[in-house]
């Protein structure tokens, strides 16, 4: 491995790293928003919306992100909507993630026993109080491991962004390899930057998991 090449490539990778980080986390944010909304609809069994959410979840959970990105990237302009590759990446990741988040949050909500709600009802709490103070905190605690796994999964999925020519880490590595044949150095940096992106998430995840789960489940 040529350290000279590596030091020369670091700034290029750093730029791609920031773009990947930005689009990845924006996608995760969108996924959370969709997931919360979707789980809410399913939990409260809103008549028509529930069916729509169920279709959405099945559609996006059972198709690869790459295919979804192609549809968004080439489909939107065909419908007359002009967008950037960056926007398509965020939208695609958010839609995919939203389907996973919906299921994780919904299963957490449904894992809180019905009788917990009944004991809250018999204490006189309103429906809103029961949801916000009793059900949601417990559901969140139950969902945490799944949510963290989803975040890590989604951030790794950014590696297909290169297919819609977003200049992310993967794109940069492939580009440099194609141009200069510095395969080892490029792949090395690709791995390093992906670990740099995900290791902190993993660590933070374990800490959050420990802190939130301790109360209910112990160590």
């Amino acid at each position: 491995m040529d350290t000279g090449v590596i030091s020369k490539y670091i700034p290029i990778f750093a730029k791609a790293f920031l773009l990947t980080l930005k689009t990845g986390w924006l996608g995760v944010l969108l996924a959370f928003l969709l997931g919360i909304a979707g789980a809410f609809v399913l939990y409260f069994k809103f008549p028509l919306l529930s069916a729509v959410i169920k279709c959405y979840v099945e559609l996006f959970r059972n198709t690869p992100l790459l295919v979804q990105l192609f549809f968004i990237y080439y489909g939107l302009p065909a419908l007359g909507i002009r967008t950037s590759a960056e926007f398509c990446g965020v939208l695609g990741l958010g839609l995919l993630g939203g389907s996973y988040m919906t299921e994780s949050i919904r299963s957490g909500l449904e894992a809180v026993p019905q009788i917990q709600k009944e004991s809250a009802v018999s204490l006189g709490f309103t429906k809103k109080q029961i949801f916000l103070d009793i059900i949601l905190p417990q559901a969140f605690t139950i969902s945490i491991p799944g949510l963290i796994a989803n975040v890590i999964f989604l951030l790794k999925e950014t590696s297909v962004f290169s297919a819609i020519s977003l200049m992310d880490l993967m794109f940069t590595a492939k580009d440099l390899i194609g141009l200069y044949y510095d395969t080892t150095e490029s792949l090395f940096l690709l791995v390093v930057f992906y670990i740099l992106m995900l290791l902190p998430v993993s660590f933070a995840g374990s800490i959050i998991e420990k802190k939130t789960r301790f109360k209910m489940f112990g160590d």
Binding site: I115, Q116, E118, I134, P137, Q138, T141, K215, M216
Partner: peptide
């Protein structure tokens, strides 16, 4: 089954 709130 008591039904205390486990997160409190």
């Amino acid at each position: 089954s008591y039904e205390l709130f486990p997160h409190m």
